[in-house]
Simulated scan of single mutants.
Amino acid sequence: MRASRLLSLLLLLQNRGRMTAQELARELEVSVRTVYRDVESLGAAGVPVYADRGPAGGYQLLDGYRTRLTGLTGDEAGTLFLAGMPGPAAELGLGSVLAAAELKLRAALPGELADRADRVRERFHLDAPGWFRADEPTPHLATVADAVWQARMIDVRYRRWKAPREVTRMLSPLGVVLKAGRWYLVAGFRDRVTAYRVVNVLDATLLDEPADRPPGFDLAAFWRDWTEQYERGVYTGQATVRMTAEALGRMAYVFPPEMSRTARERAGPPGDDGWLTTTVPIESIRHGHIELLKLGAEAEVLAPPELRERFAETARGMGRTYLPDGADSTRPGPEGPGLRVGQSSDE
């Protein structure tokens, strides 16, 4: 355990340069006193680590000192190759670079670790896109990635969902994110940082102007907060729905997580007929209509009235298509025969 921690400390100093004892303690999840002892042990072992005093001080290695790739465990060596994503790397224009890096890494590993890494590669495969989703065409991804790597401003023509549909933006790129097979550009525009779907970039031009990066910007932390806010903010309405207990259980498999989770949390107890009432978050009347149609005849929209009428219109149209005489159908409800399809509750 201590040997692994000493190697981690050494690699931190090698990769990041000068670090304070407090920073090292936070990274290694140990006390500052433990860091002091570990640094002394490295020095005693011949590692040229020294300390600078003062407010800007800290520990660092002698210029030019590099440790060789040693001390990897079998699990660590294997997961390095598991992290290699040839598909996304190729989309970013880095496929050949990744392949060359993996070859060099494997050549540097001892025989036993190299064999273990090969077994991991043979037995695990990452397929990022979700089911029934093909890869999105992203012809401007390479330009976007170049802007991120080189920290240069980028001029984009972008298609968004609200009017005006096409806009031009000069963005300060901060990172790219692959989410469920979809690429996003995280970038600053004026005084705001947000995410842009790369598939919606219609044109992109790399500029010579350097991009500003906010001090301390953390891409992973931003993405976590942004996705949470997006998922909370996208559902601006709600529908009151009466459904069977079986339909509620099936929602987890065919609905977005936020919709099914909220429906389960807000569901009342089922009655003797197996039906219950719950509240389902929706983005809009159109969105609620499309999603709740998945439950078929096992759900009845009670509110809002606009959504209920949308379902009534759909049911009337389906009746004209599928019923031999085009007549309205009835089904039993909690209080008897129920409403005819298309009949409002206050008739």
Rank of each mutant, 00 (worst) to 15 (best):
Y235F: 15
L207C: 13
E91Q: 15
D115V: 14
E291R: 15
E258L: 11
Y253R: 13
T34K: 06
N15F: 10
A252P: 07
T330F: 13
T138G: 06
L295M: 09
G333E: 01
D146V: 02
A315H: 14
R264F: 03
P305L: 15
A89Q: 06
P137C: 11
E246W: 07
E309N: 07
V39R: 08
E313F: 03
V177N: 06
A128S: 14
R116A: 13
M153G: 04
R192D: 05
D118F: 03
V47Q: 04
H140F: 12
L80E: 05
E112V: 12
L72V: 05
A303I: 04
L323G: 09
M318T: 11
A117S: 06
V35R: 04
P86R: 01
D273K: 03
A100L: 11
D203P: 01
G271C: 02
A327E: 15
T314Q: 09
G17P: 03
A312H: 15
E265Q: 10
W275N: 00
L6N: 04
A180Y: 03
R169C: 00
G319Q: 11
E283R: 13
M153Q: 15
Y235S: 09
L92R: 00
M259E: 06
G93M: 09
A211N: 05
N15L: 13
E231P: 02
Q22C: 09
W275M: 09
G319S: 15
L295G: 07
M19I: 00
D328K: 09
V301R: 02
V234W: 01
P110Y: 06
H287K: 03
I290P: 02
S260Q: 05
P215N: 06
R192I: 10
V241K: 02
A247H: 10
L7K: 07
A299G: 07
V198K: 04
L12T: 06
A267P: 06
G74R: 14
A163G: 02
W275R: 13
P86Y: 11
T236N: 05
G274T: 12
F132V: 07
A163E: 15
K104E: 15
V156A: 10
P324S: 12
S31K: 09
P139H: 07
A267F: 00
L293Q: 15
G58W: 05
D146K: 03
T330L: 14
L302N: 01
R165D: 08
R18T: 13
Q229L: 10
R160W: 05
V186D: 05
R133S: 08
R5K: 10
S284V: 08
R320D: 08
V156D: 02
W183M: 02
Y322M: 12
D38F: 13
R2G: 05
A263Y: 12
T227Y: 03
R66I: 08
A101K: 10
D118I: 01
G268T: 04
P88C: 00
P304C: 09
G216M: 02
W131E: 07
L11M: 13
W226K: 10
A267Q: 04
L105M: 15
D127R: 12
T205C: 09
E283D: 05
A114Q: 12
L178C: 07
R165S: 05
L98Y: 04
G64K: 05
A211T: 08
R340A: 14
R340T: 12
A211I: 02
P88A: 01
R190W: 08
L295Y: 06
